[in-house]
Design a protein around this nucleic acid. Structure first.
Length: 578
RNA sequence: CGGGGCGUAGCGCAGGUGGAAGCGCGCCUGCCUUGGGAGCAGGAGGCCGGAGGUUCAAGUCCUCUCGCCCCGACCA
């Protein structure tokens, strides 16, 4: 490719909306351009990188005998209603109506569509197992699209689905998929962790996330140096012991607390520790309102609650809903004297709080000395607290450590959730109808590009690993007015092309500074500079991430390029202010 | 959805109290220059996001609207 012909309008200045390096460099380097919030054009350079990632993902999928297919972006509402996800997934879906007022969505994922397909086409165990995948656009109406390709509304994902007649078969594909994902991470060159993304408590619902490490990542990872435990904070059970408080139960007392609502304020106002307060949170779910209790100093883990109540539509009740249902403004709601027939679920921590402070069930009132059993009851107990860095490892008890990352891959044993909801049955060897056993496996293809830039850049721009660089080599002709340089540059360019190397020749009629800066910004691994020494048939060769330059004879270029590419391994950036 | 901010040239931005639309970069022409985003000279480019209003007069004030960005949206 000739730079003079390449559509790559690079930018000198940082775009106003870029907060993180990957966003800034991908825009400045002319890889992407925003069309509207969370929706992007991929320019030629961006498309080249995307294709590289795409190819690696495809090869790894093919290697485990997953079969590529293509599913529609437009999906009818009916499919989503049969699984209940039209409401569960709800606001994140891009919905629209056709001219006949029928509801549709732009697919955020494809479980429904693929299960629908298999329901119609799979009738016998003899057709199983089967694994299919696609690499295609996905649509999610994110609350707040941000960080360029990292949280986009339109993005590219590889999604695979497997179908089985037994759990052993599912496990086999699941393990293969994990290996394939590790291969993808390694081939691209990302530093990553595989983390548990399931409670692992009941049933066979196993799940793992593949997280690319980055300080700006939105996944909180907890890990244990001692035993190797790694998991998402959302899925880490709390295994610490609570201490029984040796304290005499005092009589319940209603106190005035004007305008005092938050745990913080209550603790201050009444002069008690947050540990003595019990927070009463109200959630709306499929079966109405639920009261959730947790100790004042702890954070509720909403994922655990959703899982425990088996209700993905769960959300915090609005202040209006609380007023309407309970007749008391939020901040003063509590379990004492709750005359509504409402389920009360409590975190284990609540069991051990003696003489607690709780909402007074009247405006500007709180109760002191509320005690479990005597003053209020709890219907159900569960582990609902958010585990933090420093809490004990659920496996070995050592203090957990924390880090952050970008979720790139997610594998999940779905079991029969979708097949049962959509009545996707096959006939087994024994002549009975059984629901298909399923697994699903996602990989964020476009997001991978950002994750790579987060790990591979410096203050001049991107430093692509050679596996996904848009070009392997850039040939810079320093002075286009010097015939010697132009001729030698062209000769080298042609030679490398013939050798099957992806090479870009910078033949623009501009000053060399621009060329050097663009080469750095775009992040091409090997740079060959054809300058003053062209008259002696010599050129300079340099790695993107190194300041060392080597002078070589032009006849040695092909072998020098091969050698440098062989040993090319840029350093990973793990910590940096963004 | 709540709070805050911003929409002025392709990009980044400036335009007190209303009174002739500007700067830097980029772009075009010419000269000159060519090892880290050159220099000089000339030039093109704007419905000041949109609609309504106040006024003799609106980029500027008011109302509405659309879009974008940031923070929060889970602690009651």
């Amino acid at each position: 490719m000739r730079f003079s012909k390449l559509f790559a309008p690079t930018l000198k200045e940082k775009p106003a909306d870029a907060e993180i390096k990957s966003h800034e460099y991908l825009v400045r380097g002319a890889f992407i351009r925003k069309v509207t919030a969370g929706v992007f054009n991929y320019l030629p350079l961006g498309k080249r990188v995307l294709d590289k990632v795409w190819k690696i993902v495809r090869e790894e999928m093919d290697s485990i005998e997953a079969q590529e297919m293509l599913m529609p972006i437009i999906q009818p509402a009916e499919l989503w209603k049969t699984t209940g996800r039209w409401d569960d997934y709800g606001p994140t879906m891009m919905k629209f109506k056709d001219r006949h007022e029928r509801d549709f969505t732009l697919g955020p994922t494809h479980e429904e569509v693929v299960t629908f397909l298999m329901r119609n086409e799979i009738s016998s165990y003899k057709q199983l197992p089967v694994t299919v995948y696609q690499i295609a656009n996905k649509y999610r109406d994110e609350l707040r699209p941000r960080f360029g390709l990292l949280r986009a509304r339109e993005f590219i994902m590889k999604d695979a689905y497997s179908f089985h007649s037994n759990w052993e078969s599912l496990d086999e594909v699941y393990q293969n998929m994990k290996k394939a994902y590790e291969e993808i991470m390694k081939r691209i060159g990302l530093k990553y962790l595989i983390i548990e993304a399931s409670s692992g408590a009941i049933g066979g619902n196993e799940s793992h996330e593949f997280v690319s490490l980055a300080p700006i990542g939105e996944s909180n990872v907890l890990y244990c140096d001692k035993c190797g435990y790694q998991a998402s904070d959302e899925r880490t059970p709390y295994v610490g012991k609570y201490e029984e408080q040796e304290e005499e139960e005092r009589p319940l007392e209603l106190v005035e607390t004007p305008g005092v609502k938050t745990v913080e304020q209550v603790a201050d106002f009444l002069g008690v520790r947050k540990e003595k307060i019990i927070k009463s949170l109200l959630y709306m779910g499929r079966e109405g309102m639920v009261m959730v209790l947790i100790r004042g100093d702890l954070e509720l883990n909403e994922e655990k609650l959703k899982e425990y109540l088996n209700d993905q539509s769960l959300r915090m009740a609005t202040p209006e809903e609380v007023e309407e249902e309970i007749g008391v403004p939020i901040g003063f709601v509590g379990p004492v004297g709750l005359n509504k027939d409402m389920k009360i679920v409590a975190d284990e921590s609540v069991r051990y709080v003696k003489n607690a402070v709780v909402g007074g069930m009247a405006i500007d009132r709180h109760y002191r000395n509320a005690n479990l059993g005597k003053d209020f009851k709890v219907n159900e107990w569960a582990d609902l607290r958010m585990v933090k860095e420093g809490d004990p490892c659920p496996v070995c008890g050592a203090p957990l450590k924390g880090t952050k990352g970008i979720e790139l891959g997610h594998v999940f044993k779905l079991g029969t959730k979708y097949s049962e909801a959509m009545k996707a049955y096959y006939m087994d060897r024994d002549g009975t109808m059984k629901p298909l056993i399923m697994g699903c496996y996602g990989w964020g293809v476009s997001r991978t590009i950002s994750a790579v830039v987060e790990q591979y850049h410096d203050d001049k721009g991107i430093i692509w690993p050679k596996s996904i660089a848009p070009f392997q080599v850039v040939v810079i002709v320093v002075n286009m007015n010097r015939e010697k340089q132009v001729k030698l540059g062209e000769k080298i360019y042609r030679k490398l092309l013939e050798g099957g190397i992806e090479v870009l020749i910078d033949d623009r009629m501009i000053t060399p500074g621009v060329k050097f800066n663009d080469a750095d910004l775009i992040g091409i691994p090997v740079r060959i500079t054809v300058g003053k020494m062209a008259k002696d048939e010599k050129v300079e060769i340099k790695k993107r991430y190194s300041s060392e330059k080597e002078i070589i004879r032009s006849s040695d270029v092909a072998s020098a390029v091969r050698k440098i590419l062989d040993e090319y391994s840029p350093p990973v950036i793990m910590d940096e202010e963004t």
